[in-house]
Nucleic acid binder design. Structure first.
Lengths: 340, 340
DNA sequence: CTGAAAGCGCTTACAG
DNA sequence: CTGAAAGCGCTTACAG
């Protein structure tokens, strides 16, 4: 079928292009009769307006971008699901960019987005991101609204949706002590993130509360690579003084702990208690069922996208410095059962 | 900062807009010296071309759309990850649309895409889709390249990337018999899908091979809703003649089987063997570890996007009727252990 | 190697 | 209520 456009429609209707355009936009300037004629003919030819033309003209795209470290991860995929639902309601389309935890990808995505002309961005930083030059530059160049969630910046002027990392890390660690642990360890994947610092601080304060002042030797930095993590954890568990409990800052590490424990015939929870930040749907079905700190993924996505729309719609909201905290949920299961 | 565009650049350089445009596109028509001057000034002002203007002019968007039933699902999120990697390499952006297994959403997404002007589509049908009118209409209206994967149409003229559903369903069922099952049941979520039919057929043929001719009473249709599925499976397992083995066509159903079994104190695999199509990363860590038929998600994404690019780049490929089959992998674990 | 001009398909301020 | 005209910011066929 030959391509339709407004000029052809207008010609066939003996109307001006302006009138056709306004009719299709349901403008109050246009008479009901005319609207009807226009819409009917548009339907007949299955005419659809060209999005690029209107975006170019209006300077708005109705696209929003989501930049996340990975998608094959329960937390992030729930967030994307949630953002998608609310965006679809507002007739926004969702562009998804994955950084795979690489700063270099994050930078190149942001450079690319200066071209793509989205209306706004929802973002969670990759684990390598410790400085924010690329964010600041982007913001200066484009002045686009950006909302951060979970892995946020510490910069002012960027709204962020977070969870109560400090408190839940503190509670999780306290729980390990309560269940009989003497020497809990904290596993984390990257050093200087804002949220890692918060979780770290929660762990440390719970340690101190339980009389362990020297905490740093109980904190083990892991990597983004499964094999490296496996050997780090393997070495840790086969060392002379292995931990009797582990608090994992991310789900992946907890899973690797399970794998190593299985291979080493380490009994969870008898020899090793495990609790982890995790949104794993099958946490309760693992062997043993895994105690978790689960982040409110759906709500975080919802708040992010709602805030973004506020910023897109109201210019004055642009430099909002909102911080919205939604609490995580602790579920204690068999992996931290007191085995005395 | 004031917005830059080619007109301003051209003025400042005492060049024509055409020359600036060609220089930025690295056209061989333009001298090295001129290119250098243009690029330098563009950098100075941090000029980025307007994507909508060039898309409008060129009639190509460098966007591709992915339409899938859900994202919080290991199979689909791996596919998206894979598509994303290959698309990013080619500098295509990825629009993600979720249908949540609703035909009505699938239709509205496709209508919307007639406006969005993407260059191509990669798609997996929702479970409710049994007729293809909306696909045919879309194809007729837009003539856009579409590649289907996993949940494919049976229409000709649409290329599809699938896995060997019949064979792996047959093998999985044969395995249940081999492990001692007398009355295996097949659980599936929706009736008339192409892939469900194939899996169904594999199950049936394995039943017949084992002397069970009347197979339909061993096939239980489930729903898209967790609670409904829970009660269907609950009733099935508490009936007078419960199955001694279950072959689940999708991961969700297997997980629900685990949950019901736990609640009913049904021992897996002693009383009930379970095998399922699944890409669950933690299958080996479940209690008991779950036997799986895992689909080659990453490879399927890779083949889909590569084929799509072929179709986008070469017009004559448009009506390709390629069918690419990639084999699934069977992993037998404790959930189907012979317990004699 | 450079430039003038047309045009992609819309929307909107302005005029009537 | 309808229309003429300008313009969003590019690219490309054509001319020189």
């Amino acid at each position: 079928m030959e391509k339709m456009n407004m000029v052809k429609l207008a010609k066939e209707l003996n109307l001006s292009v302006s009138t056709v355009s306004k009719a299709l936009l349901d403008s109050h300037e246009i008479s009901a009769k005319t609207k009807e004629r226009v819409i009917e003919l548009a339907k007949k030819y299955n005419y659809k307006p060209n999005k690029f033309a209107s975006s170019l003209r209006k300077g708005k795209s109705k696209f929003i971008a989501v930049i996340i470290p990975e998608i094959n991860n329960n937390f992030f995929s729930i967030v994307v699901d949630s953002i998608n639902s609310f965006a679809a309601n507002k007739e926004y389309d969702l562009l998804v960019y994955l950084t795979h935890e690489k700063l270099i990808s994050e930078i190149s995505v942001m450079e690319h987005l200066e071209i793509s002309r989205v209306d706004g961005i929802i973002m969670s930083l990759c684990s390598q991101t410790k400085t924010y030059d690329h964010i600041i530059k982007f913001q200066k160049d484009t002045e686009l609204p950006i909302v951060f969630f979970d892995r946020v910046t510490t910069l002012e002027d960027f709204p962020r949706i977070i969870t109560n990392n400090y408190e839940s890390a503190f509670e999780a660690t306290m729980h390990l002590f309560k269940q009989g642990s003497k020497i809990p360890f904290y596993l984390y994947s990257s050093e200087l993130n804002y949220i890692n610092k918060e979780r770290h601080r929660g762990f440390r304060d719970a340690m101190i509360r339980n009389g362990i002042e020297e905490t740093e030797s109980h904190c083990v930095q892991c990597a983004d690579d499964w094999e490296i993590n496996y050997s780090i954890i393997y070495n840790l568990l086969s060392s002379e003084n292995p931990p009797d409990a582990i608090f994992a800052s991310i789900e992946k590490l907890a899973i690797t702990v399970y794998e190593v424990a299985k291979d080493l015939n380490f009994k969870i929870p008898q020899q090793l208690k495990v609790i982890s930040f995790s949104n794993l749907r099958t946490a309760a079905l693992l062997s043993p069922s895994l105690s978790t700190v689960s982040q409110p993924a759906f709500e975080m996505g919802e708040q992010s996208v709602k805030l973004l729309f506020k910023m897109i719609e109201k210019k004055f909201y642009k430099n909002a410095n909102d911080i919205i905290t939604i609490n995580s949920k602790l579920d204690f299961r068999d992996s931290t059962k007191n085995s005395k």
